[in-house]
Design a protein around this nucleic acid. Sequence first.
DNA 1: TTATCATAAATTGGTGCCAATTCTGGTTAC
DNA 2: GTAACCAGAATTGGCACCAATTTATGATAA
Lengths: 218, 218
Amino acid sequence: MSDDLTEMLAPEERPEEKKDVTDLLLHDILTGTLPAGTWLKQIDLERRYDCTRPEVRRALDRLSQRRLVQHNPNRGYQVYELDDQRTREISDIRVILETGVADRMIANVTPAAIAELRGLARQFDEMSFRGSIMEHYDANLAFHRALLLLAGNSELVDVVAEIRQRTVSAPVSQWRTRARIEQSAREHHLMVDALEARDLAELKRLIEIHIRQAPIRA
Amino acid sequence: MSDDLTEMLAPEERPEEKKDVTDLLLHDILTGTLPAGTWLKQIDLERRYDCTRPEVRRALDRLSQRRLVQHNPNRGYQVYELDDQRTREISDIRVILETGVADRMIANVTPAAIAELRGLARQFDEMSFRGSIMEHYDANLAFHRALLLLAGNSELVDVVAEIRQRTVSAPVSQWRTRARIEQSAREHHLMVDALEARDLAELKRLIEIHIRQAPIRA
DNA sequence: TTATCATAAATTGGTGCCAATTCTGGTTAC
DNA sequence: GTAACCAGAATTGGCACCAATTTATGATAA
């Protein structure tokens, strides 16, 4: 647990420019590097991310506020174990929110936006072949972020990002099955198609199955 | 800013049993005791809530994560100034979420639930006459919480509570106009009526105008 | 009189240390 | 052989101090 992980960072992170410890820890949890149930000992994290004790404590406190890690007083923090019910509930919320603004996406869509989304969808495709798991993860996030931005509600983008982060654990492992990834990639393109055709019902349908079938974050 | 405020605490809080500082500060912001823009100096909060420096820092960090206070590095924290656009966006999100689960509320409603909601609505009414502003505030929260619980998605209850907290500031002042409060109280009862009659369209309509017309938290 | 600069006060934020609690391993009693 | 218990180690969490940055104040010069 205390081995050096800095090489696993995404290429765009220079080692010298220190990122926020909270983000580093968050990414390690999201990518499954630190699996559910893992005890997060302060001294280990301190060494692992080459940071100070207070920084570790702040990161742990923040993530426990977001219910990503569980805090056992006087015992420590551990990566939260996610139960199925919560996963389902969170998916439901995402479905309601994202299908709820589908009409606005269609209303605000422009040729430029279509082009951008197609580019992001293609980027996701590419990451399926080559690219680290984290790049893949980020590519997915970028696509969905751009899609949501079309709704014209920047607060919503934040809220969904936050909700999505609640459903960590059992994470990218599921992801790795080739079939699932390719299915997700196809759905990305289909969503852009529906958007371009201004087909509201189809877009809603796609969003729902896209969220539901890959329960975690597809 | 450094005067003692402990007497202003709600009656149910005993002075000796210390509550979490984060909650105390949160309530003072929500009730408008600390208006938007106020600088939250650590030493003042320390004295005001009779707590230690690290506790103050943790509270400030948590609230800045929730975007209730703004953090200016090396300068301090201040209560967040809310702009109109964000307020509108947050209302939109609430409308989407709460109308999005209206059908489930109706599906899950029971006579017992109706009775409970009526009781909570009446409690809100009563608080309009007598009762502190904070009791009033809490009564409103309790009603909406119970309503949302009907949807059968406990995660949603948390999410909405969190979102609602984002739109602090310009807070209970608006509230105080008698007309607005009485209108809200009426709508509470109307919502229970619609629920009892299982009238989905009407319930959705009520939820939307209820959220929109009292933009902050009605 | 006003603008600018230097100095001083105050506030934030980081570092290190220490107490309190919990966990581990070994020992003893039954 | 098993269970309970006790001592030692390790970890968490709070506390006090100190450095760095910023703001306020006052003096000096134009």
